[in-house]
Design a protein around this nucleic acid. Sequence first.
DNA 1: GCCAGAGATGCGACCTGGATGCAACAGGCA
DNA 2: TGCCTGTTGCATCCAGGTCGCATCTCTGGC
Lengths: 161, 161
Amino acid sequence: MVTQTERHAQPAGDHEKRSDSVEEVLTLLRSHGGRVTTSRRLLLQCLFEGRAHRTAEELAVEVQASAPDVHLSTIYRNLDELERLGVVVHAHLGHGPATYHLATETHGHLVCESCGAMLEAPENLFDALARAAAHDYGFTIDPRHFAVLGHCAACVQVAGN
Amino acid sequence: MVTQTERHAQPAGDHEKRSDSVEEVLTLLRSHGGRVTTSRRLLLQCLFEGRAHRTAEELAVEVQASAPDVHLSTIYRNLDELERLGVVVHAHLGHGPATYHLATETHGHLVCESCGAMLEAPENLFDALARAAAHDYGFTIDPRHFAVLGHCAACVQVAGN
DNA sequence: GCCAGAGATGCGACCTGGATGCAACAGGCA
DNA sequence: TGCCTGTTGCATCCAGGTCGCATCTCTGGC
């Protein structure tokens, strides 16, 4: 399964290759007995082209700009399917809805409980915690799936005054 | 606000003192212009006597064992009020409902995404992450509020086979 | 090119967890 | 004791997400 998800893990920065990645995921889908549909192609284009961390609803709005009939539940189902294939992952950033992004963008999240600001943190920020959890509890952490809540520099300063 | 929450922070292990703590919180409530009601007293007794990490619904069931008319929304409102006073905190353990426990029980949570098992971890497990987040981003983490998702030893072993 | 059948879709209903508006009730100070 | 205001029960609503089902459409085989 892992080897298949790597098929679309291309070096970033090559603009011409981006739409190819959409096609590669569609090929992956087909190889798993899935079908290539308009809504799936559009959803993948949104995921590859736009910013990361969009909610299902936001993605639906973007897809509906091209195909107004695509239903929100279709977006959910397709995101679910893409997650099963290892193409996208979802993350929970605080109390709100889940957000989705490509699985190739691996990073953790720091979310401010006061102002809602979200910082992307490289996975190695969590290395020490990962080692400690593994050593003390045999627990393998997944730093992408959870947001670490707390307070950003600006809000700490305000609260301190 | 912090000094007030410390008023019920008693050394653990003193069985006789437990119900007194309920009274102390009620006094705290009263000193903030709140009132002492049956539902509040029962809710606090549940919180002080039972295990940690119960959802609002579970607490409601326990309270309703003594007072069947106490409504779930009353439980939510009282938990909210107690949280404002710093007596209880809530934590999100994975995808389910929030869980509540006394603010004096400070620890982080490791939750297995496969089997749902929850491990309580002492706050110092997060020290290295706290230092790194503060150093790199000026971000103060709150390791009690979020669960760290991942996979427990047993599930990792099963997946590895 | 056509067809059959399985996978995908649109739609509405439903579910969980939680918030809110409001009238009635009740704690607690004068 | 009575009044004022905080609290409660109830109904209703909301967000985020899931599900069942009839209909549609993609795709491999002919």
